[in-house]
Design a protein around this nucleic acid. Structure first.
Lengths: 198, 198, 198, 198
DNA sequence: CATGAATGAGGCTTCATTCAT
DNA sequence: TATGAATGAAGCCTCATTCAT
């Protein structure tokens, strides 16, 4: 009985994982349900037993992904509530770590967040939720005088954008990603910019 | 004869523009050739008279887009070869301007650039070409001692990522985009970071 | 044990009744086994425990329906063997009463009886059986000189057709069906036609 | 060029005729688009080039069928406006003639007019339209004192029902249908009933 | 040059049925 | 006796592409 229960979860998870892999590789539209089923080693009907449809898998997957990122970031920021400097450093670390672990989900999100279909609307909602979390810590830093005054919306989208694009760029290459170097450099960028003072 | 030639060019351009518009609105896959033809006010066969197929329109469009961006950036950098500080400022201005003017093309490219399948490879090649241009000026700046020493690949992908994601984020909202504010803020980020010195 | 037996019967009946309801509402093909199971408040497997399949439920239901009608008509006719006039009156009364009481079954049967494929053949056989019963009384009436000489096959199918179509027409409207008026009018039609003699 | 035009019409008509045949034989739900295409000797895509979908074919077919019947009946009734007796006789003749020619459409209508899905609603609307035409002549006959006073709605549905069911019953047999005998007998039914006066 | 009728491969989804428990 | 997870055949429909004119 234990076995059957674990098996059930197995099948749903297998579908879920196969879909993530394939969506990241080929995009939502180019991925067929047949491929998902085959890659998950279940019958096509099984996909529909656990999910209402292709769209449903997508949403499930993205929601879960962003939820995890949000949780991690929230936790990290809360642990450093009294130290904005450290909080920002943690932000980079957490985002890069997430990219490392969940690069597939990130690719999916990035590929679909532009455009205007209904699917994207839901996605942007989720992402905006996430920006809010980061925005809060930034505004707090500005109020405390730790950060220069500036538009927090610009800043947190910039942070997200640079982290993600840098990471995905390196992940696309065959060489191992210099995670530590990236993290350090982004931190430096934040601490002093890139242009030396005159 | 003059008339017929201008008409021909007209039809090809109309198809091209309709495709751009639709790809940006609904994505490559969700756009049908029927729609393109209708939106361009030509018969479906005409689309195939001027382009080899849907994919062909896409490539045409993307190549042209990136070529324009590359030209603009190259020009801007060359005009400021002796002043890295100004060159970087111009880089932001040009990138943001391009996003503003060609947001349709940008959406299309960006929606497709993050996967790892075959079509994306072509795209990434084009993008890497572009990174090279930007990388050159950065390395020069480092050598000249104007920029802090750092990995130029990280920096130029970071620049690209932050610009793009910020711009598209604001373009997706209904309000007008605060282009000037964004440009200033990204410049400041580069000049001094965001964290005040202790 | 008593309890379990009564329960069993309960479940089979519940499935049967749910199926009847749904078949009448949405037709055989548009009704799914899932719906039947849900509507009967049993698991899907249970449906297959009691019936060989969807088709089996259908046949069970139709056979039972026609059998009831046949019994009622036979009884009514036998009670009036010596009075053809009354027998015909009873025929209308019984048919209309049956349509009233079993309109679900009637809809199901009637929706399927007019094709010419294999399933319908079985149905038409059952119906022909029924026609025979009615035909007998008519022929007797003719022989006795109570009815005008005529083709009994035409007459009994006409009786069936007019009764059914009239009844279902009114059942499809939202207003209450004027059963008594219909019965009287059909009787009058048989007694004197609708056209006044010149 | 003439040829191509006639060919075009040909293809649409071929689809249309194949669908009619199959719907009548196996019912709407049991008929697949593949079968329609194959039976019409066109590619599956062609079916969708001319019709929006299976439902669309159905509607087209039924609308056309009922429209023809309505026209014929209207014409016949108008030709006998001053003679209700003859008008009724013509009504039987026209209905039976229509059943003879368009038995497929009739089967389809009959099979689908019961039940309550959206498809049927449209159908019942069409049929009610038809009843109205027949109802008018009946009411006129009553007003003129040619017919016995009675509910015209009951009468015209009864006429339709008996005609159709009788005709289809005989068409289902292998023997040739005794059209003349049926027509005469139904006329007699209307002129004097079936029961001799005491 | 330009057209649009015609195609057929391929995608998404539904659902009756089976079977291990 | 009763269940419900799992299946896969089969249906409907879309759409990029071709080709005769």
């Amino acid at each position: 009985m234990n076995k059957s229960v674990s098996k059930d979860i197995d099948k749903k998870r297998k579908v879920f994982e196969a879909a993530t892999r394939l969506f990241a590789q080929k995009g939502f539209d180019k991925t067929t349900v047949d491929e998902i089923a085959e890659s998950a080693e279940v019958a096509k009907g099984t996909v529909y037993y656990y999910f209402k449809g292709k769209e449903d898998i997508f949403l499930f997957l993205v929601e879960e992904g962003i939820a995890i990122l949000k949780t991690r970031v929230t936790d990290a920021l809360q642990d450093n509530q009294d130290n904005t400097r450290r909080a920002l450093q943690q932000l980079f670390a957490v985002q890069l770590g997430f990219l490392h672990e969940y690069q597939d989900v990130c690719r999916i999100v990035l590929a679909d967040v532009w455009g205007i279909s209904s699917r994207q609307e839901k996605l942007q909602e989720l992402l905006n939720d996430y920006y809010l979390v980061v925005g809060t810590i930034i505004e707090q830093g500005i109020k405390e005088g730790v950060l220069y005054p500036q538009n927090s919306e610009v800043l947190c989208t910039a942070i997200f954008g640079m982290t993600v694009v840098v990471a995905l760029h390196f992940l696309n290459k065959d060489k191992p990603v210099p995670w530590q170097e990236i993290e350090n450099q982004l931190n430096q960028l934040f601490m002093r910019g890139v242009v030396k003072p005159v």
